[in-house]
């Protein structure tokens, strides 16, 4: 399955405004605790780290454990400082890496 993401960042904001960001990424977050039909252990395969950078600075990050639900969802906030790019990066097991970005206009 291709990695899909849904990202919500307000297109515009006032300087100093606290804006909400929501991100959703497709990933099974396989816990490593499940077994297949033949009784074999299904190996753990999860996203380990999420980072949000705003104009190059990390403004929010998360470390995931297997207890984060499949297709991880996050809602967090950041202060609108300057017009620019907000980037999102997910990194995980088996070489998983995905990057997304959104533009914000600050007045």
């Amino acid at each position: 399955m291709r990695t899909r993401t849904l990202v919500k960042v307000p297109a515009t904001a006032r300087r100093g405004e606290v804006v909400e960001i929501k991100v959703l990424v497709s990933h099974p977050m396989e816990t490593g605790f499940r077994r297949d039909r033949t009784g074999g252990a299904i190996p753990v395969d999860i996203i380990r780290r999420f980072e949000c950078r705003y104009d190059g600075d990390t403004v929010f990050a998360a470390d995931f454990h297997p207890a984060v639900a499949a297709n991880p969802f996050l809602a967090f906030t950041t202060v609108a400082t300057t017009s620019g790019t907000i980037t999102f990066e997910w990194v995980g097991d088996n070489g998983f890496a995905h990057r997304e970005s959104a533009e914000i206009q600050v007045e």
Partner: peptide, 8 residues
């Protein structure tokens, strides 16, 4: 979660 003053 890791955050800082820029979270607001």
């Amino acid at each position: 979660f890791h955050l800082g003053p820029r979270a607001g």
